[in-house]
Design a protein around this nucleic acid. Structure first.
Lengths: 294, 294
DNA sequence: TAATGTGAAGTCGTTCACAGCA
DNA sequence: TGCTGTGAACGACTTCACATTA
């Protein structure tokens, strides 16, 4: 984990498979012999995939609580979360036994336990870097502050934006990242800049004491051990969907295809798709400069 | 990642997260005996996780192409994409043998092959529903159109927004989803609405012929077989990061913890964390109504 | 009786290591 | 000689199925 390579987008939550998070280059050096056990104990025992789902269960639970429900069975909760009950029970078993056989789980108790496990009993200050289209949306995002993630700093490279309040917080200049993050004890940094400067921003955040980064820029960030990176890439999500559309059509048009040569000639042909390609923007590329001020 | 993976995140997938997509209720009835082989052949052989990474490789490759690089070794490309070379080679092997032993891969050729595999040789019309903060950002998102995903329809429930052009496209009313999506042959729908109406929107998109959905609303959507859903949940991503912060601190404060009772008393205590909780917004909840017009 | 909690089996994905080829 | 392509070993996550308990 923690590894450098921002783990690939992996399928996360969603049903089947997916996951396979981080654990990239694990510093395979012959430093210490084993180090497998001990160290990581309590929390490390929970599979990454299960952690992701716990957050989903939490949401379903708070929703139930709002509706006045006080008890749920694994079946009901699993249904609300979009997983099967066996998986849900297994996941919950990682954090302890808080259910009652023959009855189910007490909603409030489970909420408390999951929040504790996810470390939500502590507030995590968030900094958003890159106040473009996306950064703007994130800064105004109601879901963050309401869930214990107060946005306490905004940064942009654009001098015209500095000082302008967005979502109630004045934008600071990226040159002050280290200082401001240290001051405000930012623990989570969100990078919503173009790919170009993302690594530089990342380095500054780390220098400012940020331990976790949510990266929207389309690059694999390099970070020192001990810093966690999660990447969200909209273009990748779209392309995965595209793949499924393609697969579906292939299945539909040629179901009894045994093996033979597939679609195009595997020969050494230049590109293939539309004209000279070109791939203009670089994802968040334009985003950063499009909305500009409110 | 379906997403699922989106979900979650995924693991994810994101990072991980993210992902494994649909295939929720798989109709486990004793309908047909096996059905394992045949049917899904060419494309289905590629693991979901590998598909997600192919999209990442594609980006790295186009970046290299822009820099004028014409050949890469698996080692170099893997490095740029943030994975290890063995995994990269395995992933590429799923789509065929386009490398040259002793040399590496031709950038242009690989780009073409990956694009073909991901179905990017065809344009996929995108519809964005919910023109709030996030929807706004998505509508203006440069990364979509430039990568073969032209945004061709926008929808919102707000009458005041209908007709207003966002990113060059006039917003339509959600009541017209079915009609407009059918007309414009939308293949991918993006839901950026509050959790509340998401399922309803989803149903309409499906009725309008949309086969793939990227869901930003914090709910597990129910879709018929044949429709693919990937979920992206920012709050979940943040909570996963929060978990890692918590784990890190736990490791730091009490490394030689053997087992005993963990943190809080597992007894039947009410909630636990901050006061009466409350969980205000519902993620995109506020988003939808915050920026309003440009 | 009903539903949790969990070992065990199964499935899927990653890593290893090396044969094979330019 | 150098790097790809891939079978096989390994490890992680999921599903099954049932003992267990309120």
């Amino acid at each position: 984990m923690t590894a450098h390579g921002a783990d690939v987008p992996d399928g996360d939550g969603q049903a089947a498979a997916g996951q396979g998070a981080a654990s990239e280059a694990e510093a395979p050096s012959g430093d210490q012999a084993i180090e497998v056990p001990a160290a990581r104990d309590r929390a490390r025992a929970i599979p990454e995939a299960a952690v992701a789902r716990l957050a989903v269960y939490l949401r379903a639970l708070t929703s139930l609580a709002d509706q006045g429900v006080s008890t749920v069975s694994s079946e009901e909760l699993a249904n609300a979360a979009g997983v099967n009950s066996a998986k849900l029970r297994k996941d919950l078993s990682y954090i302890g036994s808080y259910g009652t056989r023959g009855v189910g789980y007490e909603v409030e108790v489970l909420i408390g336990q999951i929040e504790r496990t996810l470390g939500l009993t502590r507030k995590h200050s968030v900094a958003v870097v890159g106040i473009g289209n996306l950064g703007h949306a994130l800064a105004n995002y109601g879901g963050f502050p309401s869930r214990g993630f107060p946005v306490s700093a905004l940064f942009d490279l654009d001098e015209d934006l500095v000082g302008v309040p967005v979502g109630g917080i004045p934008v600071s200049h990226v040159d002050d990242i280290v200082e401001v993050c240290t001051d405000r004890e930012v623990t989570i940094g969100v990078i919503a800049t173009p790919a170009k400067g993302a690594q530089e921003i990342c380095d500054r955040l780390v220098a400012g004491g940020v331990q976790c980064i949510l990266n929207f820029a389309p690059v694999a960030l390099q970070v020192p051990d001990g810093v966690e990176v999660r990447k969200v890439d909209l273009a990748v999500e779209m392309q995965i969907l595209s793949f499924h559309v393609a697969r579906r059509q292939q299945d539909a048009t040629a179901p009894p295809d045994v093996d033979g040569a597939d679609v195009g000639p595997p020969g050494p042909n230049g590109r293939g798709p539309d004209g000279g390609g070109q791939q203009t923007g670089d994802e968040t590329e334009s985003a950063n400069r499009m909305v500009e001020r409110l």
